[in-house]
């Protein structure tokens, strides 16, 4: 690829990304009332999307091979336990990550 072609390719990726981010705001402008259905989605989507993001992070874990997802399972339980106990975001995340690093570096 020439430099110009590279710039165009990167430009297309920028355009696509910006489009996906701005589109909802352009489709449902502030002045007009947002349709009921869209407001409903805005309220219920986040919980589902956070679920999707958790699954997305774990997408390459295979229960049937390698370490069978055991380090991931243990570490997520650790994150949840820490969080329900202390309710401190940083402690839960740091604790879970250290737990995972120890498991994959030393045990599995």
């Amino acid at each position: 690829m020439t430099l110009t072609q590279q710039v165009i390719t990167i430009g297309m990726v920028v355009l696509g990304t910006v489009l996906t981010r701005f589109l909802p705001f352009l489709l449902f402008p502030a002045g007009k009332p947002t349709p009921r259905y869209i407001r409903y989605l805005g309220k219920v989507l986040p919980s589902a999307v956070f679920g999707l993001l958790v699954v997305y992070c774990l997408k390459n874990v295979s229960p049937l091979s390698g370490s069978h997802g055991i380090p991931e399972f243990i570490s997520i339980m650790a994150v949840a336990a820490l969080h329900l106990w202390k309710r401190q975001m940083l402690i839960s995340i740091a604790g879970g990550t250290v737990c995972y690093m120890l498991l994959v570096q030393l045990v599995f």
């Binding site: 919980s47 956070f50 679920g51 993001l53 958790v54 992070c57 774990l58 991931e72 570490s75 997520i76 994150v79 949840a80 969080h83 329900l84 975001m89 839960s92 995340i93 879970g96 990550t97 995972y100 690093m101």
Partner: peptide, 13 residues
């Protein structure tokens, strides 16, 4: 795993 842990916490919150 820090990213996974973060999304788990956010999901839990």
């Amino acid at each position: 795993f820090v990213m996974t842990a973060m999304f788990v916490v956010i999901f839990l919150e």
